[in-house]
């Protein structure tokens, strides 16, 4: 049984094909890296899986059930959560309230919601900042707040859109640890990332998009030595 299947998905904006006939599977429990040059359609693909866009052609299946065409909140309820590349904290709410707003999805009452939110904050190392109004958080913490919020919906699949971009090396290590711990919880992760060191280190498999088309799929080792990928994205010097 396929866990999350993207089947022949295309998405057009006017005449432009942002993604074209892309098919691949996300296996339960893995970390799948999604890489490609700017404008390759990575975020568009996330938006299709998450429900913000409906595919122009093709479908997305989650546990054999078609989810494409549903609204984002329905898809989130079914167990697929995401973070945003351009972080979208609920600005005038405290960090804790941000997470409480999302943990209410599975909580029966406020006590449970707050409890779940505090768990998510401790997990992502934001507990100390719980009373800060999220507008005042530095970028690294805002990215982690996105992760905490997504986790608070108790997802089975987590879509991470450039959660590492713009982080300094120590924040980077912290985030890698967090991602590994999320995987250990049994949550399946699909991650968009430009940071090659990170993506090669944490991904079980990698899918490469270029101009909206899938040009490669495989283990980090295979991807690194794939001539198509090297030409389109990695570049000669990095291939070593």
């Amino acid at each position: 049984m396929s866990f999350l299947e993207i089947r022949k998905v295309s998405r057009f904006f006017g005449g432009l094909a942002a993604i074209k006939d892309v098919s691949f599977e996300l296996r339960q429990g893995e970390i799948l890296g999604l890489i490609g040059p700017n404008g390759a359609g990575k975020t568009t693909l996330f938006n299709v899986v998450n429900g913000f866009y409906h595919p122009s052609r093709g479908d997305v299946f989650f546990k054999e059930k078609k989810i494409s065409g549903s609204k984002p909140h329905v898809i989130c309820r079914q167990g697929i959560a995401r973070t945003f590349q351009v972080v979208k904290p609920l600005q005038r709410m405290s960090v804790l309230d941000n997470v409480v707003a999302s943990s209410f999805l599975r909580a029966k009452n406020k006590e449970q919601a707050v409890e779940a939110a505090i768990d998510a904050l401790q997990f992502t190392g934001l507990y100390e900042d719980r009373d800060v109004i999220s507008r005042g958080l530095p970028l690294g913490k805002r990215k982690r707040l996105e992760i905490a919020r997504a986790l608070a919906t108790q997802p089975e699949v987590l879509l991470l859109d450039e959660s590492f971009a713009g982080l300094n090396p120590s924040e980077l290590d912290e985030s890698i640890t967090i991602i590994r711990r999320i995987k250990n919880k049994g949550i399946t992760i699909m991650i968009i990332e430009h940071h090659m060191r990170v993506i090669m280190a944490i991904s079980d498999r990698i899918v490469v998009l270029n101009y909206g088309e899938k040009i490669a799929e495989g283990t980090p080792l295979e991807i690194r030595s794939n001539p198509l990928v090297v030409e389109a994205y990695l570049g000669e010097t990095q291939s070593a």
Binding site: F52, H73, F84, K88, P89, L90, A101, F104, L105
Partner: peptide, 19 residues
């Protein structure tokens, strides 16, 4: 919580499972 989440960012609210 949901009202304020919608005020602050409707897309974010939607993706957090808020109808």
């Amino acid at each position: 919580y949901y009202f304020v989440a919608i005020r602050e960012d409707q897309d974010a609210a939607e993706s957090l499972g808020i109808d």
